[in-house]
Each structure stands twice: as structure tokens, then as C-alpha cells.
Design a protein around this nucleic acid. Sequence first.
DNA 1: TAGTGGTCTAGACCACTAT
DNA 2: TAGTGGTCTAGACCACTAG
Lengths: 239, 239
Amino acid sequence: MEEVLVTDGRALKHVQVREYVRNLVTGAAPGSPAPSERELVQHFGVARMTVRQAMDALVVEGLLERIPGRGTFVARPRRTASRITGYTEEMTRRGMLAESQTLLARREQAGPGVARALALTEGDAVIHWRRLRRADGVPMCIEDAYLNEVLLPGFLQSGMPTSLYDSLESRGLRPTWAEDSVNADKATSEESSLLEVDPMSAVLRHSRRAVSGEKVVEVSRSVYRADRYTLWVQLGHDG
Amino acid sequence: MEEVLVTDGRALKHVQVREYVRNLVTGAAPGSPAPSERELVQHFGVARMTVRQAMDALVVEGLLERIPGRGTFVARPRRTASRITGYTEEMTRRGMLAESQTLLARREQAGPGVARALALTEGDAVIHWRRLRRADGVPMCIEDAYLNEVLLPGFLQSGMPTSLYDSLESRGLRPTWAEDSVNADKATSEESSLLEVDPMSAVLRHSRRAVSGEKVVEVSRSVYRADRYTLWVQLGHDG
DNA sequence: TAGTGGTCTAGACCACTAT
DNA sequence: TAGTGGTCTAGACCACTAG
């Protein structure tokens, strides 16, 4: 009998087995064999159903793959849909420095469109945050975000964060689902002046309605310089 | 003991239980109670682990939700990411009549860009299909699709279908994952003439690389009239 | 207190794969 | 033939919820 690595005496057995296997296989090449179920039964001194419960979770997660008669193996990583990101994370991912200049940040009464999008009643308090956003110092986009004040108490008073999405995440409101619309247009004179482009330049208009669980956490409209920005989206999933 | 509905004597027990429960709850209102595990044990005369295996599958599927101490209930349908659709399905969904006029359909040798995108070697045979696509009779977009000829034998000879995605689906090549890029631009003179808009009108340029399992099945570039088209995308998932 | 799902045991037989 | 995952049994105790 091998020595069992004690991770946490209070932990449930199937969780102990699961995390033990996860540690073994993370970083391993796809196709590498995982321990067999009966090996783990011996190693942990648990019933086989307990091991299967642990392995089931990793299979559902996409980390392992079972092949009847052969064994359990590290699965090829699945292609997945885009993570829902905000401007800061998106630009950082592209290797650019994201900066923002707040043009407006105040409490407003929701108009009919914003109220419906945020699932509020017209006249309810919303936070309106308008920013000019730069990438590597160059103007990239103007974003108008509307937030449900009830979900973000003290948001305006707490000093505005750089990243709205980091701020939402720290409150447990990271968007889990979003509905975006995108179209093409020409810049208005005000937009072209802020974005430092010629009037009537091509721009990408992007709207988002972002939901965290049951709550609508963000409604925004952004206008991007088309000469500097292309939107990328991954859809669907393999496996 | 109630009478057991016999569905298929050859079926595995957990599958019988699963499908029995699925039939019971499909169409039921979210929050409706499903049979308790012990009820199903009595009903089918099986062990509780067998029932749990059946219910687990429905929970992972998102059909049921377990609440410890209370029971198992029909889950609220999850918000999910957009299905990957082509032009025909997309326009039909919007309640418009989708029509297409083939401008070009021929075998070509893949250039460097198309070859890389389709995971082929430069010079390999590809199908190039260029269409002017209308919605309710009005020009909407020009699409250039490149397809791997090896995956679609006889495609050009078989009479071109209306919907590329229907055609892929019938060959078991429905895209499961896609990578899209979108930006804004102004129409070229050739584009504006085909799309029946003024030169330099705003257009949306959309590129897609669509994958089915392990195979790259479609690479396309489309240009949409911005005055008639807004792209919609749903990202992520609840639950 | 009765019922629920969550966890766990200690076996069993099967079909399949690899040697 | 030995090993693997797939299926299944007949119990058990726990924490939690609801009346």
C-alpha cells in the first residue's frame, strides 16, 4: 500500500480524490493515462463508487476522458467560447496598455430604454459612467455604461476603478452571460473630435447587456475607431 | 407498487429511469417538483445509485436542479450562447426571406491566407463560393466562402444548395465552434454597386473560421450593408 | 418528525482491450 | 488472461428542510 497524501482531513473523500487526480494530471500531455479507478481505490482506501464520483466530475469538466476497456486519460483541451471581458482585460490580452479618462460619472434617473435593459422601472436610480478609453495612449473608444445603483452601493463614492469588470467581480457580479450587438456607422463630429479621427470616419458601434446569474449588471454602448479596432468572438464549444 | 411503464427491455436501467423522468418533466414549469429519488427506487425496483446516475445526467444537462433537503425540481432554462448559424438561418430567424445569387462558384488553389485558415497547404484544392445575399429582396451582403474540397466531394457538381450550413449539416459537418472577427469600413465602389448603396457607405466586415469537431469546414469573409444589418451575439451561459 | 438529497461502503457481473 | 471502465445492488449515516 502506498502512502496516502493527506490534503485535508475535513474534506469529503470524493473531493480529496478529485483534487489529488487533478493535481496529477494538470500539465500532463493530452492522452496521458490517469490512475485507474481500482488504483485509486487502493491508494485512498475508499469504495469504487467514491472514486467514480470524483472522476465523473473531472470528466464533466472536460479534464479527463474515459475509454472503456482501456482506461482514463487526460483529455485534449476543448475549444471554448470567449470569456466575457471588458475593455481593460481585452486590451491587456492584446498586449496593449489600457487607460481610461472619465468624462462623466453620476447618478441619473433611468430613461425608458435603459430602464428596460437593466430590468428596472423608469425613473429608478442608475449610475451613468462615460469614459474615453485609450490603448497605448491612442484614443480607441468612447463607452457609456449604465449600472444598477442598487447592486453597487457606494460605487460613485468609492473612487472609480480602472476596470469595471474587476470591480463587478470583487462584488460577486462578474457577468456570466452577455448579449451584444455590433454595427458599422460613421463618427459624429463630437465622436470624431474625442477619438481624434476625421469626421465621418468609419466606427464600430457596440452595445452590451451583461447579466450575472439573474441580475442585469451592465448596459453599455461603445463606439470604437474602426481603423484601430476589430472585434473578435469565439462561439460554441467542442466536445 | 405502481405499474411500471415498460419502454424498452433492452435499455440500461439508468437510461430507462432517465428517459422516464425526462418525459415527465419536459414541458413542466420551472420549479415543478420531479419525483424523489426514493419514489423512483420504488417505481422501478432499482437501487438508489442507479436512480442517482439517471438524475445526475439530467442535472448536468441543465434540465433538473437539486435542492438538498427539499427535493429535485425542473430547472429554469439556462441562457446559452448563440447557436452558430449561417446567413439563411439567421435571416429566417429575423423573419426575413433569405435569397442568394451565386456570383462565382469554382475550384481554386488555396492562397497562403486561405490555406492557413483552412489548415491546408498552399495550392491545395478549395471551393470558392461568392454570393450576393438578399433579405426580403434587398441586397444585404456579399459573402466569399472558402471550403475544403476534400471534405465536400462533388459539392460543385451536385447543384449548389441555398444554405451552406444545411448542406454541411447533412454531411455531419455542422460547425461546433467558430471564430469571428468584425469591423467597420466604407464600401468599395464594386461593393456599393452590388449592394445598391452609395459609394463610401458604412459597411460591416465579418470574417468567420468555422470548425466541426477537428475539421475546419468554412472560412468566409462577408461585407454587410450597415444600414440594414446589425450583428447580434450571445456569449457565455448561466447556471 | 418525516422526507429529501449528499455521501459512502463492499461487494458483483458485464463487455471490452491488450498481451 | 489480466486489467479497464460500465453498470448495478442493498444497504447505511448525515445535514438539511418543512410541517
